[in-house]
Computed example of a mutant assay.
Amino acid sequence: MSQAFYQNYKLGILGGGQLGKMLIQSAMDYNVDISILDPDANAPCKNIAAEFNIGKLTDFDTVYEFGKECDLVTIEIENVNTQALKKLREEGVKVFPQPEVIELIQDKRLQKQFYKENDIPTSPFILTDTKEDVLSNADFLPAVNKLGKEGYDGRGVQIIRTESDLSKAFEAPSLLEKLVDFETEISVIVARSEKGEVRTFPSVELSYHPVHNLVEFLFAPSTISEEIEKKAQDLAIDVITKLDMVGLLAVEMFVTKSGEVLVNEVAPRPHNSGHQTIEANFTSQYEQHLRAILDMPLGDTQALIPSIMVNLLGEDGYQGLAEYEGLDEVLSISGVNVHLYGKKITKPFRKMGHVTLVGHDTATLKENARFVKENLKIVSK
C-alpha cells in the first residue's frame, strides 16, 4: 500500500451499525476516511463517518453508485447486493470480503454444503424447501430448523426437539441440522490478508440467552484444553483458506462431549464474539479487519488480560427512546469498559451496547459480569 493511501484513500462500508462505528473508531488511527451506506438516517455511524449516505443495501443501483466513489468496499452486514459488488470489482474497485464469499454466507444452505464438500467438520443436516419437508423428516429429530436466508441475531432459528414442535417449522427454503450434544460453544476469529498472511485470535467461550439465541456473555480465554484449542485454531484457518477469503472471519463452533470440534456458522466481518479484543488484546478485531483488507501486516492477536463481555440488550416490555438505568453503579467497578452503540430506539432484546470487563482474577470478573447484567438495564419511558 503506497503512502498516498494515507492522504486520499476512501474506504466504503456497507452498513452503518455498531460494527461500522467501531471500525471507524479504529480507522481513525490510520487516518483513513470512511464512507458509510445505511438505510437508517439515525444509524450509529451517522455522526462519525467522513461521509454518511442513506440508501438500501440490497438495491443494485444504490450500492453501485456508492461504491464507484470508493477505492475499496467492505461490509459490516451480509445482507447486501453482491451483483453490484461484482460490477464494481470488474471496474477496478477492490471488494473484501469477495462477493462470492458474501453470497455463500448469505445462504446457510450453501454454507453447510460448502463445509460438506470441503471436508470441514459440521453437524449432519438435511436441506428442506417447505414445512412439509421438515414434517417428513421427523425421524431426524431433535434438530434445529434454520432459514436459508435472512436469519440473523437469533431470528430464523427454531429448535425442534420432538414431533410436537414440528408446527414451528419454516415454510421456506431452510435446513434441518442435527441438534449437537455439545460441551460448550466457542468462537475463533481469523484474518487473512490479500497476500495470504493468516492470523487467529485465541478462542472465546460463548453463553447464549436460553430463548432468544443471542450471546449474553463471552469469556476469554476459553476453558477448553490445549488439544481442543489447537483443533479450533486449525479449523478456523482451514475455513478461511478454503474460502480463499480476504478479511476477517468469525468461526462459531461446537465442542462436543467426545472432544470433536464442529463448525456451526461463520460471519465474514467483525463479530459480536470479538468485541472484547478492543481492551483485552494487542490488536482489536476491528484493526485486524482493516489491516487484512488493506493488505497491511496483520497484528499480534495475543490476549493481554482475561476478559468477560456482556451484551447489553433492550429490556423485554420496553420500546421507545432508550434510557440507561444503573450506568453509574456499573461505571464504579474497576476494569469496566462501557460501549453504547448510539441507537436511539430500544426494543426487546435489541443489541444496544456491550460492556467488557478486564482483570486477572476470574472469580471477581464473573461476579462483576453478573452485577452488570443484573443492574444495567436499557428501558424507555
Rank of each mutant, 00 (worst) to 15 (best):
K86T: 03
Q111V: 06
L135Y: 04
K94N: 13
E91F: 01
Q106D: 13
D61M: 12
K116M: 12
K116F: 09
E69C: 12
E117Y: 03
D71N: 15
I102R: 04
I75F: 02
L110A: 10
T82E: 10
L88Y: 05
A84N: 13
V73A: 04
T128G: 05
Q83N: 14
T82M: 08
L72I: 05
N53G: 08
K86Y: 09
V134Q: 02
A49H: 01
Y115I: 02
Y115M: 10
D71R: 01
F60A: 04
F52T: 03
F96L: 08
P121D: 10
N53A: 12
L127A: 12
N42D: 15
C45R: 01
R109C: 04
R109M: 07
K94P: 02
T128F: 05
Q111P: 09
A43H: 05
K86L: 02
T130L: 00
V73P: 07
L104D: 12
F52R: 09
L104P: 12
L127R: 06
D107F: 00
T74M: 04
T74S: 14
N81A: 07
D107P: 06
T130Y: 09
E91M: 06
T82K: 03
Q98C: 07
I120T: 13
Q113D: 15
T122W: 00
R89C: 10
